[in-house]
Design a protein around this nucleic acid. Structure first.
Lengths: 183, 183
DNA sequence: GGGGATTGTAAGCGAGCGCTTAGCGCGGAT
DNA sequence: ATCCGCGCTAAGCGCTCGCTTACAATCCCC
């Protein structure tokens, strides 16, 4: 699976051959098929596990406090830091969705909807309580998530900022974007 | 080229065959090679043209006014609206970069750096003039661009908001993110 | 210490890939 | 009236792809 993550992240799913993955894992191509029935099944295993990590991350952050402002800060900090620290997995998670077979796609799409729902509901609650300003919670939630998702595209191990620091900065930016009272 | 855009956007470059493109264009596969020397050359033509459009867009918006706040609003509005309205081209532009041969990649990477530079310089100028609040212009600029780029990932023709309306909303969000005085 | 499961290998099959070749019809310059 | 060259097609080449088959080594339980 690690060899798959590395290969898919670097070249993309369709440009990666089973021979690439095998040699990166120090095995013969046939050995892959002992562990996964197909190349697509390997992608699904990686994508599902990554999405579950991301969902758990967001869920735990959301439940860590009752204050919408602090909950949102936690979500963005952890979500952004995860996309930076684990940017290889994150790239597969975010950019190889379209390569999943339909049934498998629906399963990870459910996980994605779960993430979006948590953030959207939190924005809505913040607006109700008067601590956020947002004309449309759906759009605002998507904008917040976009900030994190896009980190996977450009972050590299040579980036100057640590994942934790980047998370802090993006947390600030997101709260200001939501018109959080103080920040 | 239109058939190429459609195919690359839908399936991704590597999953698209020359036969896909040809049949989408109503031609035989060999006919492609009258117009482009290779599949990669077609991708490059699409990617370059798309990047030039985006750069021009941002350049014109930046020069449309002397006020950093208004210039930034124009940039985000137009950049976001473009990624929504032209989301098929935008997807190829944003997600198929890695499929370009090295020399061709460098050419579009230059265009990308041009876009980033305009936004970064504008943020820096706004901070100097005291109308923006940003600890790091580079990070803030990337965050602003992320908002626009990620629109290409999720926007579809069935989305409820028009590109223009989405641009307006994102313009507001971006200005608040940058701590613009009024908004 | 015998035997089934587990984890691997070498070799290669059938399919589909990017691209080439040989040649054809037709519009426009001479 | 002729002929050139542009835009195209039918056919197919050579190669690499995902995956399968037949078989070997090792582990672990009794």
């Amino acid at each position: 699976m690690l060899a798959g993550v590395e290969s898919f992240a670097q070249r993309g799913y369709h440009a990666t051959t089973t021979r690439d993955i095998a040699s990166s894992a120090g095995m013969s191509p046939a050995a892959l098929y002992v562990h996964f029935p197909s190349k697509a099944a390997l992608l699904f295993a990686i994508s599902r596990s990554g999405h579950e990590q991301a969902l758990n991350l967001v869920q735990e952050a959301a439940e860590s406090t009752d204050s919408p402002v602090e909950a949102m800060r936690e979500i963005v900090e952890r979500f952004v830091a995860w996309h930076a620290r684990r940017h290889t997995v994150a790239r597969v998670v975010q950019y190889e969705l379209g390569a999943l077979p339909e049934r498998e796609y629906e399963i990870v799409a459910d996980l994605r909807r779960g993430i979006e729902r948590i953030v959207r509901d939190l924005v809505a609650r913040g607006v109700e309580e008067g601590v956020f300003t947002a004309t449309d919670p759906g759009t605002a939630a998507r904008a917040v998530l976009s900030l994190g998702i896009d980190v996977a595209r450009w972050y590299t191990d040579r980036s100057r900022k640590t994942p934790a620091l980047l998370g802090k900065e993006y947390g600030q930016l997101a709260l200001r974007m939501l018109g959080a009272a103080q920040s």
